[in-house]
């Protein structure tokens, strides 16, 4: 008798999702959070892979922590990620479900947009970034999001669940010139372009120090801003309480234009500023880092 391991895993995964959906419908967000605790605990007991994938970050963020302390750090991080996933399901499935978001630095962003030179909003895979970005509104100019295929699919899925249309225009980064032409045009029209500044998936990059190690980070955003004269604002989201999240502007700067012979050093400087903001963020929210792979070898 043949044993299709993948089919079994798919079945178990679907069953797991369905159990969470039932919990959400019957007991709401709090009920699903409660179920999440033993699920994450069991997952950490039986999966060595998750410990390995989280350890790349944990050992840099908490170098002094021993094995037991790191185990509980991992629990907190995976549990917080589980909460973000539960929230997404809850917002999609339950009528009246709502998270309260606060945008710290909104006035500064509005003042930058009012200058009419566009705005590059740089963010990262931290906190409940998808939910938070989905609710960016009140900018009075169109918002564009530079995304690769997987991010686009997740964003569309989120809005499909809520039976809403995507409130921003998606610029595909896997197209000609990595979506740079559309992004440039959008900034020239004075619009907002959001870009993930942490995961490198090809194209221009800079190597900077982040949490004590060298890492390759995408750098096209800074060139985009320098060429168009747009400012860069680093906006990171964090879940603060069960139904609250915060989006905070961590840094604002204007990358100055530079010629191609000095481009790399300029890109390294601006990318370094992004890395510093991310470090400060992780100082405050150490368990909201959602890059589950060896980030330093990307």
């Amino acid at each position: 008798m043949s044993f299709d391991r993948r089919a079994v895993l798919r079945f178990l995964e679907a069953t797991g999702h369905n159990i969470f959906y039932v919990m959400l419908l019957l007991f709401g967000q709090a009920g699903a959070y409660l179920l999440l605790m033993p699920v994450i605990f069991s997952y950490l007991i039986f999966s060595r892979k998750i410990h390995r994938n989280v350890a790349y970050y944990m050992k840099r963020r908490f170098p002094a922590h021993g094995v037991l302390r790191l185990w509980f750090d991992t629990y907190q991080l995976v549990y917080s990620f589980g909460q973000v996933l539960v929230d997404r399901g809850w917002l999609g499935l339950c009528r009246g479900a709502r998270l309260n978001g606060e945008l710290v630095g909104q006035d500064e962003l509005l003042a930058l947009i009012a200058k009419g030179r566009g705005l590059v909003l740089l963010t990262a895979h931290v906190g409940n970034w998808q939910t938070a970005l989905s609710h960016i509104c009140g900018f009075k100019v169109p918002v564009n999001s530079l995304m690769h295929y997987e991010q686009e699919a997740v964003a569309k899925h989120y809005f499909d669940l809520r039976r809403e249309s995507v409130p921003f225009k998606i610029i595909k980064s896997n197209g000609f010139m990595g979506g740079m032409i559309e992004s440039t045009a959008a900034l020239q029209r004075g619009e907002v372009v959001t870009i993930m500044g942490d995961r490198y998936a090809g194209g221009p990059y800079a190597e900077v120090t982040f949490l004590g190690g060298k890492v390759r980070l995408p750098a096209a955003a800074y060139s985009l801003a320098a060429a168009t004269g747009a400012p860069v604002a680093i906006l990171l989201a964090a879940k603060t309480r069960r139904r609250d999240y915060i989006m905070k502007v961590w840094d604002i700067f204007y990358p100055e234009p530079c010629d191609r012979n000095h481009r790399q050093e300029h890109l390294s400087r601006w990318t370094g500023r992004f890395a510093q903001s991310l470090e400060r963020y992780l100082g405050e929210y150490p368990y909201q880092w959602y890059n589950f792979f060896d980030f330093w070898s990307q």
Binding site: M177, G178, M180, I181, E182, T184, A185, Q188, A220, T228
Partner: peptide, 28 residues
């Protein structure tokens, strides 16, 4: 030239010739 030059080229074409390149298809 590379993708970062493409960004500058879009801006330069607009600046010198007052012509906007709006999307990937036009740019390509």
């Amino acid at each position: 030239l590379d993708s970062l030059d493409a960004v500058e080229l879009v801006v330069l074409v607009q600046k010198h010739f007052d012509v906007q390149i709006d999307d990937m298809d036009e740019g390509q």
